[in-house]
Amino acid sequence: MEIIVNLDVMMAKRKISSTELSERIGITPANLSILKTGKAKAIRFSTLMALCRELDCQPGDILEYRE
């Protein structure tokens, strides 16, 4: 059981680079990389909200639960 972060998929769909997205949501590129690689242990609602706003998607498009 795990939560998969599909951020790279959404970024590819929206054709947005890591640098641009990190600037838009106000986190460092290093932290965005932690999110993209699935190394993050938790995500703040504020970060998730900013991601959804900038990528024009729902939380479920970014996070996925797998058995």
Partner: peptide, 8 residues
């Protein structure tokens, strides 16, 4: 702290 550092 490790958990906090990996909270984005």
């Amino acid at each position: 702290r490790s958990e906090l550092d990996l909270t984005i």
